[in-house]
Design a binder for these strands. Structure first.
Length: 806
RNA sequence: GCCGGCGUGGCGGAACGGCAGACGCGCUCGACUCAAAAUCGAGUGGGCAGCCCCCGUGUGGGUUCGAAUCCCACCGCCGGCACCA
């Protein structure tokens, strides 16, 4: 084949790679053939592949492109490997932006949301992601959110949903409360406003009841990144210790503290109460300190996030506490460094062995007593520069003196327990999940309040409690739903008299805590999901999404799954067997964001280069778990590669008509060039297989395919007149099959050009030929003392002796 | 402060105990062209006129015939948690 023929016609002429006609054509074909619709059952093993479903903001961004491209590679590869693959898509459709659109532009949230969904669905289709669109769901659909209500009632019945007055996070901009998980560094996770604290009566889900299991079962998640598990462990924050009962000398009240260091109990020289501890107020009543305590309580309420920067301060209550192990009376103080939310809201002060207590003691001239001896601990407590917090040997500790601290902890707790003065205790940092939101565009909480019967769950048969269409969207200190009289009016399910509906809606994270179950049977109308379908598809085999959900969605979903397990509705305890967290897409080193103005629209890239180029670039430019810097010239490089691959097929196709692909072992002997070509191609097949199978190393898989293409060009250059058609056909077919998961449209086109009927995506994944990989000659590098001394070329089957001899 | 991760050419990255820099971007040169673009080909860590030579994977040690890779210490960057008793 003459080289001139291969060169340059610029744009859309026959034979040139033209994604703009080719991609829509194959997308339409896949749609018509319902290629990606799946059903339960059959011979093939199932594989559930899932990307975190998007919020329908209006346009896809690069994060979506990356997420869903990764999902699609796994899905398409898995299909070729013979799996029955579930790859569904839906919309996390409730949330604040829709409501803001209503307030700002007067467009109803529902209209806005469904409009966005239509746009984004088309965008996803344009990317060629192989979804089973027949399973599409939107959480704002009453047929979806009725099951949020159903699950809420299930939790309520099990004592896991409750209403309580508590200090809660309030976002002044969003005009709603937030869960602890949604406060990041003291700011609202959505709008970054400074979060305030308010005392409100709100609905909670008792996730703390599952703290231990959520922690323990992390060990089962071998397919999760360590990073995410560590973040969840930190968030749950388990610490083991003891509760110790002190008694107030003056009043006889019991004062319980939690400590992780019972071995330091003989070192207690004072007690500190949180300003909001009930005793703090009682013990100071009528004294001049009462006002200081109130002031400190307010200060802590308003600025919990900056507490750590506040200097430690306190006031004495005048009362004393009796130490249960030695009968000593120590002064009880109120201090601004003790949190009411953790432990018992009171601590024992051991200044020698806790840095915070030491700072407090030094400030107020309280005594310091050393009870743990260790390296660097001085005799004289006055010379203690920092508290000694490491383990050591107990001293000045009565009968426990001489015990190593670990052993001492157990001994002291046993002693306390025997005397009824304390017991072992485990504390968690995790708090219950606050799910009330004072917003419109969410799931109504299915509760009514009756003057006579109090709080009553809405009976299941009355679900869904539908969102009213007409409300006042602009919040004026009360939830929008309270502005709809028709909604507000209800009947008490118990006594039938008139009652009022709950007007808060649910946190949208409730919606996403079980959507993966709904995908298994999206039209099921009697239950949130069909149990058989869930038994078949679940758990999700490969979940892919961003790291930002490490302690939000991923923790909540685990919690929901465990509740459903306890209810006997599912038979697995963890929803996601394997998790992959992708890196961000950056430009100029920063995450793309509107406010920074460094956004590249993935659909712009698609309209210029096609979906395959956009996909290829984002897969190739970095390993998927790392951040990826967007590069315009990199995109062009990806396009160039596709052109090169396409040209090979297009220009060789006429020569290959009626030619069988070469198979090794069919008796033909090949020349050195053909063997070199086959070696490169089969090496690429092996590399792509390993990279898809053993790790998510798609960047190196694509690099291997680029090498194969380079090798094909080299071959063409060398054998201009005498190409081996069988080997060329074999090579091009293998190349096409291996490209299929990454760049599905061009692969389909190449497959067709090679004379095959569609679809390439229904072909089995190719096996590499081990014979092709064999080399007759190997170059052995001889190293002496770390230096390359020589290179010897030997037959590949040379024995070790021969090698030594050489 | 505690926990986790990462440091490799001009850039993204590869190799993860065996020839460091695959693949791509960028750059240089050549072919084609009146010319350019596109395409095809050659080159591209530093030193050196050049090499089969010397240096080189954050820094300093160690293990090993052999270390970017394993171990120890340090430095720097990123992320999570943080007055949680």
């Amino acid at each position: 084949m003459a080289a001139q023929e291969l060169t340059g016609v610029r744009s859309p002429s026959a034979g040139e790679y033209d994604p703009h006609t080719l991609e829509p054509r194959w997308q339409a074909y896949w749609d018509e053939q319902r290629l990606h619709q799946v059903h339960e059952g059959g011979q093939r093993p199932k594989r559930y592949v899932l990307g975190m479903f998007p919020y329908p903001s209006g346009r896809l961004h690069m994060g979506h492109l990356r997420n869903y491209t990764l999902v699609d590679v796994v899905a398409r590869y898995s299909r070729m490997r013979g799996y029955n693959v579930l790859n569904p898509m839906g919309w996390d459709a409730f949330g604040l932006p829709a409501e803001n659109a209503a307030i700002q532009h007067g467009e109803h949230p529902a209209r806005w949301t469904y409009g966005n969904i239509d746009v984004m669905r088309n965008q996803l289709k344009r990317l060629g992601i192989s979804y089973d669109w027949s399973r599409e769901i939107a959480t704002c659909d009453p047929e979806y959110y009725r099951w949020n209500q159903w699950l809420f009632l299930l939790m309520y019945r099990r004592g896991l949903a409750y209403r309580a007055e508590a200090r809660v996070n309030w976002c002044p901009a969003c005009q709603t409360v937030l869960a602890n998980e949604q406060v990041v560094g003291g700011e609202c996770w959505r709008c970054h406003s400074r979060v305030e604290q308010r005392l409100l009566k709100q609905w909670f889900l008792r996730i703390t009841a599952y703290a231990e299991r959520l922690l323990q079962d992390l060990d089962l998640l071998e397919g999760w990144p360590e990073r995410v598990k560590v973040m969840q462990r930190n968030w749950i924050g388990r610490s083991e210790g003891a509760q110790v009962r002190f008694r107030v000398k003056e009043t006889g009240d019991e004062l319980v503290v939690f400590t992780t260091r019972p071995d330091t109990l003989f070192g207690v020289t004072f007690m500190v109460l949180s300003p909001r501890h009930p005793l703090a107020q009682r013990l100071t009543e009528g004294t001049p300190q009462a006002q200081v305590v109130r002031r400190m309580a307010e200060q802590m309420t308003a600025r919990e996030q900056e507490l750590a920067e506040l200097p430690k301060e306190g006031v004495p209550t005048g009362a004393h506490a009796i130490n249960p192990v030695n009968g000593e009376a120590v002064p009880i103080w109120v201090g601004n460094y003790v949190l009411m939310e953790y432990g018992t809201g009171a601590i024992m002060g051991v200044p020698a062995h806790d840095q915070r207590d030491l700072e407090f003691a030094r400030r107020y001239g309280l005594p310091v007593r050393i009870v743990i001896q260790g390296p660097g601990v001085p005799e004289d407590p006055a010379r203690l520069e920092r508290a000694y917090e490491e383990p050591g040997v107990m001293v000045n500790s009565g009968p426990f003196t001489g015990l190593p601290s670990e052993q001492g902890k157990r001994a002291v707790v046993e002693h306390l327990q025997a005397a009824g003065l304390g017991q072992p205790s485990v504390q968690y940092r995790l708090r219950d999940w606050l799910i009330s939101r004072q917003r419109y565009w969410g799931t109504p909480i299915p509760i009514v309040y009756c003057a006579r019967c109090g709080e009553q769950p809405v009976p299941e048969e009355e679900l869904p409690v539908v969102l009213p269409a007409q409300v006042d969207f602009a919040p004026k200190g009360k939830p929008p739903l309270a502005s709809s009289p028709e909604f507000l009016q209800a009947r008490c399910p118990r006594c039938g008299s008139s009652a009022q509906r709950e007007t808060d809606t649910m946190d949208t994270f409730v919606d996403s805590s079980w959507y993966f179950l709904r995908f298994c049977s999206p039209r099921e109308s009697r239950l949130p999901f069909d149990r058989e379908a869930v038994a078949y598809w679940m758990p999700v085999d490969q979940y892919i999404g961003g790291i930002e959900h490490a302690v939000l969605h991923l923790l909540y979903s685990r919690f929901f799954t465990k509740v459903l397990y306890d209810e006997g509705l599912v038979s697995f305890q963890e929803p996601f067997t394997r998790l992959f967290t992708q890196g961000m897409v950056t430009l100029g080193g920063y995450a793309m964001s509107k406010s920074r103005g460094n956004v590249v629209d993935p659909l712009d890239v698609v309209s210029r280069f096609g979906a395959d180029t956009a996909r290829l670039f984002i897969l190739f430019a970095a390993p998927p778990e790392k951040d990826l810097e967007w590069s315009e010239s990199g995109v062009e490089g990806a396009f160039r590669f596709l052109q090169r691959a396409y040209r090979l097929v297009d220009q060789w196709a006429p020569l290959l008509e009626g030619v069988e692909a070469y198979r090794s072992g069919d008796g033909q002997s090949l020349g050195e060039r053909e063997r070199a070509l086959r070696r490169a191609v089969h090496r690429a097949v092996r590399k792509v297989t390993q990279d898809c199978e053993e790790r998510f190393s798609f960047n190196t898989a694509i690099a291997a395919l680029m090498e194969a293409v380079n090798e094909l060009y080299r071959y063409r250059e060398q054998v201009a007149d005498q190409p081996h058609r069988g080997v060329i056909r074999e090579s091009l077919e293998l190349l096409t099959l291996c490209l299929a998961p990454f760049v599905p449209h061009i692969a389909e086109q190449m497959w067709e050009r090679l004379g095959h009927a569609p679809s390439v995506h229904l072909q089995p994944w190719p096996a590499y030929d081990p014979q092709a990989l064999e080399v007759e000659q190997v170059t052995v590098v001889v190293q002496v003392n770390g230096r390359v001394r020589d290179r010897i070329t030997l037959p590949a089957d040379a024995s070790e002796e021969e090698l030594r001899a050489a």
